[in-house]
Each structure stands twice: as structure tokens, then as C-alpha cells.
Nucleic acid binder design. Sequence first.
DNA 1: TGCCAGGCCGGGT
DNA 2: ACCCGGCATGGC
Length: 224
Amino acid sequence: MGKDVSLYEIFQRLFERFGPQHWWPGETPFEVLVGAVLVQNTAWSNVEKAIERLREAGLTNPKALYSVPETELEELIRPAGYYRIKARRLRNLLRFCIERYGGSLERMFRTPLKELREELLSINGIGPETADSILLYAGNLPTFVVDAYTHRIFARHGWVDFDIDYHTLKDYFESQLEPDTALYNEFHALLVKLGKDYCHKRQPRCEECPLREYLPEGGPYEPV
DNA sequence: TGCCAGGCCGGGT
DNA sequence: ACCCGGCATGGC
């Protein structure tokens, strides 16, 4: 796997082209945590509207947000889509933060990475990408975030199989890269930028893609 | 108009 | 152990 491509080289290409992305687009660790749930299979533009409503309502910490009745929370986050299931998932996460860490994210993120990751994954509604996004972007802990863009970009180049699972791809990145929070943060952000601009699901625009020289003969691979 | 977006869960084979 | 439908809004 990986076909002798250097991830550092790929990172360098992307960074030269796009520059620093200053991710995650959230002002505080709490907003990042909330955004990680709201963005599940959803465009970020929709999530922004929901976060803005929470901010306007002064719901800026776990206890405050958990005190909001579920049906009211549903209406607040409605622009983010899947609003009923996301309200439930968000409350599952908030309850965990409150019951386990007294509502202090600072305390929560002092927990050893592997241990906290397992705890997050045990919450209904928190899968591997949401957990890793919270750990990396809210907690500054060195865990690599894999998402649909990462998978699509790497599979289309033939660097990994289309049917690779989340943890195998994650482990591939972490085995090739030093455990560096800033690097993981920037790399994932750059992959999302590349994905949005050049690697859409239906119509990739390889002509101007910064990785075009790595394309396989005959264009990008497709799922079998 | 229809397709897509920074997933995840639960029920059915 | 897979496989698949459901969840929902907003932008192009």
C-alpha cells in the first residue's frame, strides 16, 4: 500500500499550492466539538449557520448547551440538517463531557489520547472521524483524521484500495508521518481544500490539480 | 431539477 | 461480517 509515494512530498505540494488553512473553522474548542458532530455528511456552510445560532443564544459551554431541552436544540441546529438525530448525538456527547469531566473540556483533553479516543467512540453517534476531529482540532492531540476526501483522493491515485477501511487508512498516515499535531492538522485541512476544489465525487478537475503529475495513466481510478 | 456535502447507526441478510 | 436504508438542510 502507498506505492512508494512520500506523504511528506504530497503535503509539501499541497502546502506550496494552498498555503496554511488555519483550521478548524471554529473559534473555541467547544465550537469545534459541536461542529464535529454537526458536520457529519453535511456541507460546512450549513453548520456555520447552526453554530452562529448557538453563539447568539450564548450557549458556549457543555453545561449551558445541555440545559437546553432537546426539541429546542433541534430547532437551533436545524440549518445543519439531520437535526433530530444530531440533537440526540450532540446531547450524548455533552452528557459524557459533563458526567465524566465535569463539563471541562480542558480536563477532558488532559486524558491520554488512546484512552479518550476509546471513550469517545463508545458514545452513540460518535464514530471514528468525529472522534478524531474532536481530538485533533479541539484537543490538539496528534491523531490523524481521515474523511471522504482523503479516501477519494488517495484511492483515485491508486495509492490505496477503494475498499480500505477507516483505521487502515488512518494507520497508514500515522505510520508514515511523525506524530505532529500541527502537521496532522494542516495536512487534513489541505486534503479537504484539495477535495473541494479539485476532487468532487462526480467530476474531478485534474487539469489544474496540484497532484496531477501523480495521476495514473488514463486518469483517476474509479470504484469497482 | 437533481445531486451532493468533512458520517453513523440499526436492522436485515 | 457485510450491506443498505434512513437521517434533512442549503448550494450549485
